[in-house]
Amino acid sequence: MSEYFTWLLDNAGQVTALFWAHTKLAVIPLLIGLVLALPLGWASRRIPRLYTPMVGLTGLLYTIPSLALFVALPGIIGTKILDPVNVVVALTLYTVALLVRTVADGLAAVPEDVQAAATAMGYRRFRRLVAVELPIAVPVIAAGLRVAAVSNVSLVSVAALIGVPQLGQLFTSGFQLFYFVPIVWGVVLCLLLAFLLDAVILLVARWLTPWTRAAQA
């Protein structure tokens, strides 16, 4: 056991740097993805004809294996092959793919009498969306965001294969040395990061929806 902690102390600086890099690579796409998915999801809810193609298209995106997307993106958007931007763009695409459907379904799940009541009280479309529909859809959207966050953490580590530094590097270097310690730490830290992101989203969602706790109390 002590071998593990000795190694961690010896490599504390590098591991911290990798952990931060991993966090950034996982979180930035999450935020951009959310910002993009809100209007797209709203549109595919507003315009029923958009829903099926939108969900189909984003579903199609999701079928592309991550490594393939990391490698193919430079060819499509003209970045360099080892550029971390490729990872950010790829994960943003996955996040959007996952969240568009979630946002659309979350908005669709807002009870119709609530929407009707808001309209009857004189809300215009945009205010109704921001003040009534989005808040009510928060729990559903947050659930989608949690899935996206957790899978992003796992997907980022794959980028080690194309040389983008983050916790995945612990896997590749451990494999090359046939040495367990960094691999185990990599797995543990990935799980820790996933857990932390999950908890943050959960807390923010709770803070945004105080009424869900009131109902339980």
């Binding site: 794959v158 995945g168 990935c190 857990f195 999950d198």
Partner: peptide
């Protein structure tokens, strides 16, 4: 879902 696939493979 949270387990990194690359880590698991290795």
């Amino acid at each position: 879902r949270a387990l990194p696939t690359l880590g698991l493979l290795v």
